[in-house]
Simulated assay, not measured.
Amino acid sequence: MLKSITVTLLLGFMSWASPLVQAGVGSYEFAEPEMAQRFVDLTTVLRCPKCQNQSLADSDSIIAKDLRGQLQMLIKTGQTDRQITDFMVQRYGEFILYDPPFNKGTLVLWLAPFGMVLLGLWALWFFGRKTSGQGAMLTPKEQQQIEQLLADNQAQHRDLKND
């Protein structure tokens, strides 16, 4: 019963949200379907400069709307995807790309995950290794000596208490 209600609510939400997603792209008109597809592709690989965690397609910020309009104009003027992304990088920096290129400026960004994995493996090795338990084991003779010392100590304590 609960599962069917959850599925119904999920389907209802998806049917409600779908026109909203399509409205963002549909409001930009192109002469050819290929141009519209290029627009969709570019707006999903370019990051909103204001929102930072959303693509141009997902963001409702004013700058994202302006950039979508500018993308439409650049596509209509016949610029290639490479020319458009180069223009955006020149204007906003490599931050605007969700998949930045591997170069000196992004070296830390690309190598940091590998460094973190290596650091985690080292920590597992360092803290996970076991110390030898042989040093803590007592021989039967040593155990007998300790028991004798404890017995002597208890006897002295009783003698002091009785005095």
Rank of each mutant, 00 (worst) to 15 (best):
R38N: 04
L71C: 01
V40S: 07
H157V: 09
A155W: 05
C51E: 10
T44I: 15
S61V: 06
G24Y: 00
Y98F: 14
G78F: 14
D99G: 01
M1G: 09
L160K: 04
Q37F: 09
G93Q: 09
K104P: 03
L46T: 02
L138R: 01
P113E: 09
Y28E: 10
D58S: 05
L56F: 00
M35P: 03
L138A: 07
Q70Y: 00
V7D: 13
K161Q: 10
L118K: 03
Q148T: 14
M35E: 12
V45Q: 05
P100A: 00
Q148L: 10
T80K: 01
L111D: 01
R47Y: 04
Q52Y: 07
K76T: 14
L71M: 07
I63T: 14
A23Y: 04
A112R: 02
Y92C: 08
Y98D: 08
L2S: 13
D159I: 03
T106E: 11
I63E: 12
A36R: 06
G135K: 09
G78E: 12
M116L: 11
K130H: 12
R38L: 11
W122K: 10
K65M: 10
V108N: 05
A112F: 06
R158D: 09
A155M: 06
N162K: 04
T139M: 06
Y98A: 05
T77Y: 03
S61T: 13
Q156R: 13
Y28V: 11
Q22R: 07
Q52R: 13
G115E: 05
T106G: 06
L42F: 02
R68E: 15
H157T: 08
M88T: 01
V7C: 07
S132Y: 00
T8E: 10
V108H: 02
Q90N: 14
D159C: 02
K50R: 14
M137K: 06
M73D: 14
S55G: 09
D60R: 08
I62N: 03
R38S: 04
K161N: 06
D159L: 05
A112Y: 04
G133T: 10
L121A: 07
S55V: 15
A23I: 13
G105D: 15
L107K: 01
T80P: 01
W110Q: 12
P49V: 13
T80A: 02
N153E: 12
N162C: 04
T8F: 08
E29Q: 07
L138F: 06
E142W: 03
G105W: 00
K76Y: 00
T106Y: 05
Q134D: 10
L107H: 01
A31P: 04
S61N: 10
S55T: 15
L2K: 15
E142P: 02
A57T: 14
E147N: 09
L74M: 14
R38W: 02
D163T: 07
Q154V: 01
Y92M: 12
I84H: 04
D41W: 02
L150G: 07
I62G: 00
A136K: 07
K141Q: 10
I146F: 11
D159T: 10
F87S: 01
K161Y: 02
L124S: 11
K3V: 08
E34H: 08
L124F: 03
R47Q: 08
L160D: 06
A151P: 02
